[in-house]
Design a protein around this nucleic acid. Sequence first.
DNA 1: GCTCAAATAAAAATCGTTTCTATTTAATCA
DNA 2: TGATTAAATAGAAACGATTTTTATTTGAGC
Lengths: 147, 147
Amino acid sequence: MDSDVAEYLRQLRMKVTPKRLAIIDILKKESGYLSPEEIWRRMKKRFARIGLPTVYRNLEELANGKVIYRITHPNRQLYYFYCGNSVHHHHFVCVACRAVNDIEYCAIGDLQEEVRRKLSGRVVSHLLQVNGLCRNCLKKNYKGTWR
Amino acid sequence: MDSDVAEYLRQLRMKVTPKRLAIIDILKKESGYLSPEEIWRRMKKRFARIGLPTVYRNLEELANGKVIYRITHPNRQLYYFYCGNSVHHHHFVCVACRAVNDIEYCAIGDLQEEVRRKLSGRVVSHLLQVNGLCRNCLKKNYKGTWR
DNA sequence: GCTCAAATAAAAATCGTTTCTATTTAATCA
DNA sequence: TGATTAAATAGAAACGATTTTTATTTGAGC
Protein backbone atom coordinates (compact mmCIF):
# COMPACT_ATOMS: atom_id res chain seq x y z
CA MET A 1 0.00 0.00 0.00
CA ASP A 2 1.12 3.53 -0.73
CA SER A 3 0.27 4.82 2.73
CA ASP A 4 2.89 2.44 4.07
CA VAL A 5 5.52 4.15 1.96
CA ALA A 6 4.34 7.60 2.99
CA GLU A 7 4.47 6.59 6.63
CA TYR A 8 7.93 5.18 6.20
CA LEU A 9 9.11 8.38 4.56
CA ARG A 10 7.75 10.40 7.48
CA GLN A 11 9.64 8.18 9.87
CA LEU A 12 12.78 9.09 7.95
CA ARG A 13 11.87 12.79 8.28
CA MET A 14 11.54 13.01 4.53
CA LYS A 15 8.74 15.01 2.99
CA VAL A 16 6.17 12.97 1.11
CA THR A 17 6.37 14.50 -2.34
CA PRO A 18 4.65 13.21 -5.48
CA LYS A 19 7.99 12.70 -7.19
CA ARG A 20 9.41 10.68 -4.35
CA LEU A 21 6.36 8.46 -4.34
CA ALA A 22 6.54 8.10 -8.10
CA ILE A 23 10.18 7.01 -8.02
CA ILE A 24 9.36 4.35 -5.47
CA ASP A 25 6.32 3.29 -7.45
CA ILE A 26 8.34 2.95 -10.64
CA LEU A 27 10.92 0.79 -8.91
CA LYS A 28 8.24 -1.29 -7.21
CA LYS A 29 6.64 -2.13 -10.54
CA GLU A 30 9.97 -3.21 -12.02
CA SER A 31 11.26 -6.73 -11.47
CA GLY A 32 14.86 -5.67 -12.04
CA TYR A 33 17.16 -2.83 -11.19
CA LEU A 34 17.11 0.50 -13.05
CA SER A 35 19.59 3.28 -13.70
CA PRO A 36 18.83 6.90 -12.74
CA GLU A 37 18.41 7.77 -16.39
CA GLU A 38 15.97 4.93 -16.98
CA ILE A 39 13.94 6.05 -14.00
CA TRP A 40 14.05 9.61 -15.29
CA ARG A 41 12.65 8.51 -18.64
CA ARG A 42 9.75 6.85 -16.86
CA MET A 43 9.28 9.93 -14.65
CA LYS A 44 8.98 12.16 -17.70
CA LYS A 45 5.86 10.27 -18.69
CA ARG A 46 4.30 11.21 -15.37
CA PHE A 47 5.55 14.77 -14.85
CA ALA A 48 5.81 17.63 -17.29
CA ARG A 49 8.79 19.04 -15.43
CA ILE A 50 11.22 16.69 -13.81
CA GLY A 51 14.97 17.13 -13.60
CA LEU A 52 17.54 14.40 -13.65
CA PRO A 53 19.27 15.80 -10.54
CA THR A 54 16.01 15.34 -8.66
CA VAL A 55 16.05 11.68 -9.59
CA TYR A 56 19.66 11.31 -8.50
CA ARG A 57 19.08 13.12 -5.21
CA ASN A 58 16.03 11.10 -4.31
CA LEU A 59 17.59 7.81 -5.23
CA GLU A 60 20.50 8.52 -2.96
CA GLU A 61 18.30 9.62 -0.07
CA LEU A 62 15.96 6.67 -0.47
CA ALA A 63 18.89 4.28 -0.58
CA ASN A 64 20.32 5.85 2.58
CA GLY A 65 16.96 5.28 4.19
CA LYS A 66 16.94 1.66 2.96
CA VAL A 67 13.71 2.16 1.07
CA ILE A 68 15.59 1.09 -2.04
CA TYR A 69 18.92 -0.63 -2.61
CA ARG A 70 21.96 -0.15 -4.75
CA ILE A 71 23.36 -2.75 -7.13
CA THR A 72 27.10 -3.12 -7.48
CA HIS A 73 27.60 -3.34 -11.23
CA PRO A 74 30.95 -3.96 -12.93
CA ASN A 75 30.51 -0.80 -14.99
CA ARG A 76 30.39 1.13 -11.71
CA GLN A 77 27.32 3.11 -12.71
CA LEU A 78 24.47 3.53 -10.28
CA TYR A 79 21.55 1.13 -10.29
CA TYR A 80 18.71 0.85 -7.83
CA PHE A 81 15.83 -1.44 -7.06
CA TYR A 82 13.03 -1.64 -4.59
CA CYS A 83 12.96 -4.36 -1.98
CA GLY A 84 10.35 -4.48 0.75
CA ASN A 85 12.34 -6.92 2.84
CA SER A 86 13.51 -4.86 5.79
CA VAL A 87 15.49 -7.49 7.68
CA HIS A 88 19.15 -7.82 6.85
CA HIS A 89 19.71 -9.92 3.74
CA HIS A 90 21.57 -10.02 0.46
CA HIS A 91 20.69 -10.26 -3.19
CA PHE A 92 20.94 -12.58 -6.14
CA VAL A 93 21.16 -10.54 -9.31
CA CYS A 94 20.53 -11.96 -12.75
CA VAL A 95 23.23 -10.59 -15.03
CA ALA A 96 21.01 -11.19 -18.04
CA CYS A 97 17.57 -9.79 -17.22
CA ARG A 98 18.48 -7.67 -14.15
CA ALA A 99 16.03 -9.51 -11.89
CA VAL A 100 16.85 -9.28 -8.20
CA ASN A 101 15.94 -11.93 -5.64
CA ASP A 102 16.55 -12.04 -1.93
CA ILE A 103 19.18 -14.35 -0.51
CA GLU A 104 18.55 -15.30 3.08
CA TYR A 105 21.99 -16.64 3.64
CA CYS A 106 24.33 -14.27 5.42
CA ALA A 107 27.81 -15.00 6.67
CA ILE A 108 28.22 -12.00 8.92
CA GLY A 109 28.66 -14.10 12.04
CA ASP A 110 31.52 -16.17 10.68
CA LEU A 111 33.09 -13.09 9.13
CA GLN A 112 33.09 -11.13 12.37
CA GLU A 113 34.52 -14.13 14.14
CA GLU A 114 37.38 -14.54 11.65
CA VAL A 115 38.19 -10.82 11.62
CA ARG A 116 38.23 -10.70 15.40
CA ARG A 117 40.21 -13.87 15.95
CA LYS A 118 42.76 -13.71 13.17
CA LEU A 119 43.08 -9.99 12.58
CA SER A 120 41.98 -8.44 15.88
CA GLY A 121 39.85 -6.07 13.84
CA ARG A 122 36.20 -5.05 13.95
CA VAL A 123 33.68 -5.51 11.16
CA VAL A 124 31.68 -2.39 10.38
CA SER A 125 29.87 -3.44 7.23
CA HIS A 126 29.98 -6.04 4.56
CA LEU A 127 28.99 -6.32 0.96
CA LEU A 128 27.67 -9.56 -0.44
CA GLN A 129 26.15 -9.81 -3.87
CA VAL A 130 25.58 -12.98 -5.80
CA ASN A 131 25.51 -12.70 -9.57
CA GLY A 132 24.25 -15.29 -11.96
CA LEU A 133 21.41 -16.40 -14.15
CA CYS A 134 17.87 -16.62 -12.90
CA ARG A 135 15.55 -19.49 -13.63
CA ASN A 136 14.08 -17.88 -16.74
CA CYS A 137 17.36 -16.80 -18.28
CA LEU A 138 18.82 -20.23 -17.64
CA LYS A 139 15.99 -21.73 -19.67
CA LYS A 140 16.65 -19.29 -22.48
CA ASN A 141 20.28 -20.37 -22.45
CA TYR A 142 21.55 -16.78 -22.17
CA LYS A 143 25.22 -16.45 -23.10
CA GLY A 144 26.05 -12.77 -22.79
CA THR A 145 27.43 -10.74 -19.93
CA TRP A 146 26.13 -8.04 -17.60
CA ARG A 147 23.40 -5.68 -18.70
CA MET B 1 60.99 -12.00 -6.44
CA ASP B 2 60.54 -9.87 -9.53
CA SER B 3 61.20 -12.72 -11.92
CA ASP B 4 58.05 -14.36 -10.56
CA VAL B 5 56.01 -11.38 -11.65
CA ALA B 6 57.67 -11.30 -15.06
CA GLU B 7 56.97 -14.97 -15.53
CA TYR B 8 53.38 -14.50 -14.51
CA LEU B 9 52.96 -11.66 -16.97
CA ARG B 10 54.34 -13.83 -19.75
CA GLN B 11 51.84 -16.53 -18.86
CA LEU B 12 49.16 -13.91 -19.36
CA ARG B 13 50.66 -13.05 -22.76
CA MET B 14 51.42 -9.56 -21.50
CA LYS B 15 54.70 -7.88 -22.38
CA VAL B 16 57.03 -7.35 -19.48
CA THR B 17 57.46 -3.59 -19.61
CA PRO B 18 59.29 -1.47 -17.04
CA LYS B 19 56.12 0.48 -16.33
CA ARG B 20 54.06 -2.59 -15.73
CA LEU B 21 56.64 -3.93 -13.31
CA ALA B 22 56.80 -0.56 -11.58
CA ILE B 23 53.05 -0.42 -11.07
CA ILE B 24 53.09 -3.85 -9.50
CA ASP B 25 56.10 -2.92 -7.41
CA ILE B 26 54.41 0.23 -6.13
CA LEU B 27 51.31 -1.71 -5.13
CA LYS B 28 53.39 -4.45 -3.53
CA LYS B 29 55.17 -1.95 -1.31
CA GLU B 30 51.88 -0.43 -0.17
CA SER B 31 49.95 -1.97 2.70
CA GLY B 32 46.68 -0.47 1.51
CA TYR B 33 44.81 0.14 -1.70
CA LEU B 34 45.65 3.03 -4.05
CA SER B 35 43.78 5.03 -6.68
CA PRO B 36 45.07 5.29 -10.26
CA GLU B 37 46.02 8.91 -9.63
CA GLU B 38 47.97 8.02 -6.50
CA ILE B 39 49.84 5.35 -8.41
CA TRP B 40 50.49 7.82 -11.20
CA ARG B 41 52.05 10.29 -8.74
CA ARG B 42 54.40 7.57 -7.55
CA MET B 43 55.17 6.57 -11.14
CA LYS B 44 56.16 10.12 -11.99
CA LYS B 45 59.01 9.84 -9.51
CA ARG B 46 60.34 6.86 -11.42
CA PHE B 47 59.69 7.86 -15.04
CA ALA B 48 60.20 11.16 -16.78
CA ARG B 49 57.33 10.47 -19.13
CA ILE B 50 54.36 8.53 -17.90
CA GLY B 51 50.76 9.12 -18.84
CA LEU B 52 47.76 8.61 -16.62
CA PRO B 53 46.01 6.54 -19.34
CA THR B 54 48.92 4.11 -19.21
CA VAL B 55 48.31 3.66 -15.51
CA TYR B 56 44.59 3.11 -16.02
CA ARG B 57 45.13 0.64 -18.85
CA ASN B 58 47.66 -1.41 -16.95
CA LEU B 59 45.64 -1.47 -13.78
CA GLU B 60 42.66 -2.83 -15.67
CA GLU B 61 44.70 -5.44 -17.48
CA LEU B 62 46.51 -6.53 -14.34
CA ALA B 63 43.23 -6.79 -12.48
CA ASN B 64 41.75 -8.89 -15.27
CA GLY B 65 44.78 -11.14 -14.94
CA LYS B 66 44.28 -11.32 -11.16
CA VAL B 67 47.73 -9.92 -10.49
CA ILE B 68 46.04 -7.14 -8.57
CA TYR B 69 42.54 -6.68 -7.19
CA ARG B 70 39.89 -4.03 -7.18
CA ILE B 71 38.33 -2.55 -4.06
CA THR B 72 34.64 -1.73 -4.01
CA HIS B 73 34.53 1.73 -2.47
CA PRO B 74 31.35 3.65 -1.68
CA ASN B 75 32.57 6.59 -3.75
CA ARG B 76 32.65 4.24 -6.72
CA GLN B 77 36.09 5.35 -7.81
CA LEU B 78 38.70 2.80 -8.80
CA TYR B 79 41.12 1.46 -6.24
CA TYR B 80 43.58 -1.39 -6.56
CA PHE B 81 45.91 -3.38 -4.39
CA TYR B 82 48.37 -6.18 -4.79
CA CYS B 83 47.66 -9.56 -3.27
CA GLY B 84 49.89 -12.54 -3.86
CA ASN B 85 47.26 -15.01 -2.68
CA SER B 86 46.16 -16.77 -5.82
CA VAL B 87 43.56 -19.12 -4.34
CA HIS B 88 39.98 -17.86 -4.18
CA HIS B 89 39.42 -15.68 -1.14
CA HIS B 90 37.95 -12.37 -0.02
CA HIS B 91 39.19 -9.25 1.68
CA PHE B 92 38.89 -7.33 4.91
CA VAL B 93 39.38 -3.65 4.18
CA CYS B 94 40.15 -1.11 6.87
CA VAL B 95 38.00 1.92 6.14
CA ALA B 96 40.40 4.11 8.10
CA CYS B 97 43.92 3.28 6.90
CA ARG B 98 43.03 1.36 3.72
CA ALA B 99 44.86 -1.77 4.82
CA VAL B 100 43.68 -4.94 3.12
CA ASN B 101 43.83 -8.39 4.70
CA ASP B 102 42.80 -11.74 3.34
CA ILE B 103 39.67 -13.42 4.61
CA GLU B 104 39.72 -17.17 4.19
CA TYR B 105 36.05 -17.59 4.82
CA CYS B 106 33.94 -17.97 1.71
CA ALA B 107 30.28 -18.81 1.49
CA ILE B 108 30.12 -19.75 -2.17
CA GLY B 109 28.99 -23.29 -1.44
CA ASP B 110 25.99 -22.27 0.63
CA LEU B 111 25.15 -19.48 -1.80
CA GLN B 112 25.10 -21.76 -4.80
CA GLU B 113 23.00 -24.21 -2.86
CA GLU B 114 20.41 -21.60 -1.90
CA VAL B 115 20.25 -20.11 -5.38
CA ARG B 116 19.80 -23.52 -6.92
CA ARG B 117 17.26 -24.85 -4.43
CA LYS B 118 15.12 -21.79 -3.82
CA LEU B 119 15.49 -19.87 -7.07
CA SER B 120 16.43 -22.55 -9.61
CA GLY B 121 19.16 -20.17 -10.78
CA ARG B 122 22.88 -20.54 -11.35
CA VAL B 123 25.62 -18.56 -9.60
CA VAL B 124 28.18 -17.09 -11.95
CA SER B 125 30.15 -14.89 -9.59
CA HIS B 126 29.92 -13.34 -6.19
CA LEU B 127 31.26 -10.30 -4.45
CA LEU B 128 32.16 -10.37 -0.80
CA GLN B 129 34.00 -7.55 0.88
CA VAL B 130 34.23 -7.00 4.60
CA ASN B 131 34.78 -3.45 5.76
CA GLY B 132 35.84 -2.39 9.19
CA LEU B 133 38.67 -1.24 11.38
CA CYS B 134 41.96 -3.07 11.51
CA ARG B 135 43.82 -3.80 14.71
CA ASN B 136 45.89 -0.61 14.56
CA CYS B 137 43.03 1.74 13.77
CA LEU B 138 40.94 0.16 16.52
CA LYS B 139 43.70 1.02 18.96
CA LYS B 140 43.79 4.59 17.72
CA ASN B 141 40.04 4.78 18.25
CA TYR B 142 39.39 6.01 14.72
CA LYS B 143 35.95 7.60 14.34
CA GLY B 144 35.70 8.75 10.74
CA THR B 145 34.39 7.06 7.67
CA TRP B 146 35.89 5.68 4.45
CA ARG B 147 39.08 7.06 3.00
C1' DG C 1 -3.74 30.86 5.36
C1' DC C 2 1.20 31.76 6.98
C1' DT C 3 5.90 30.50 7.66
C1' DC C 4 10.03 28.18 6.72
C1' DA C 5 12.88 24.51 5.85
C1' DA C 6 13.04 21.08 2.45
C1' DA C 7 12.55 19.89 -2.30
C1' DT C 8 12.88 21.10 -7.07
C1' DA C 9 14.18 22.91 -12.05
C1' DA C 10 17.45 24.12 -15.12
C1' DA C 11 21.77 25.13 -16.46
C1' DA C 12 26.38 24.57 -15.73
C1' DA C 13 30.33 22.47 -13.86
C1' DT C 14 33.06 18.66 -12.36
C1' DC C 15 36.36 15.24 -12.81
C1' DG C 16 37.40 10.43 -12.98
C1' DT C 17 37.95 7.68 -16.83
C1' DT C 18 38.34 6.50 -21.75
C1' DT C 19 39.37 7.23 -26.58
C1' DC C 20 42.24 8.56 -30.38
C1' DT C 21 46.45 8.90 -33.17
C1' DA C 22 51.13 8.95 -33.82
C1' DT C 23 55.24 7.06 -31.86
C1' DT C 24 57.99 3.80 -29.29
C1' DT C 25 59.28 -0.66 -27.57
C1' DA C 26 59.36 -5.70 -26.18
C1' DA C 27 59.39 -10.09 -28.19
C1' DT C 28 60.34 -13.16 -32.01
C1' DC C 29 63.14 -14.97 -35.27
C1' DA C 30 66.38 -14.93 -39.01
C1' DT D 1 72.70 -8.78 -33.47
C1' DG D 2 69.42 -6.62 -36.65
C1' DA D 3 64.79 -6.68 -38.89
C1' DT D 4 59.93 -7.27 -38.10
C1' DT D 5 55.60 -6.71 -35.92
C1' DA D 6 52.11 -6.51 -32.65
C1' DA D 7 51.64 -4.57 -28.24
C1' DA D 8 52.42 -0.67 -25.34
C1' DT D 9 52.79 4.19 -24.65
C1' DA D 10 52.41 9.61 -24.64
C1' DG D 11 49.79 13.34 -24.98
C1' DA D 12 45.89 15.61 -26.13
C1' DA D 13 41.25 15.46 -26.41
C1' DA D 14 36.78 13.73 -25.53
C1' DC D 15 33.40 11.66 -22.74
C1' DG D 16 29.56 11.23 -19.86
C1' DA D 17 27.74 9.96 -15.53
C1' DT D 18 27.10 12.50 -11.56
C1' DT D 19 27.12 16.72 -8.76
C1' DT D 20 26.86 21.58 -7.76
C1' DT D 21 24.74 26.00 -7.93
C1' DT D 22 21.02 29.39 -7.65
C1' DA D 23 16.55 30.83 -7.94
C1' DT D 24 11.93 29.12 -7.31
C1' DT D 25 8.36 26.12 -5.52
C1' DT D 26 6.12 23.19 -2.21
C1' DG D 27 4.95 20.19 1.88
C1' DA D 28 4.39 20.24 6.86
C1' DG D 29 3.33 22.41 11.07
C1' DC D 30 1.01 25.98 13.32
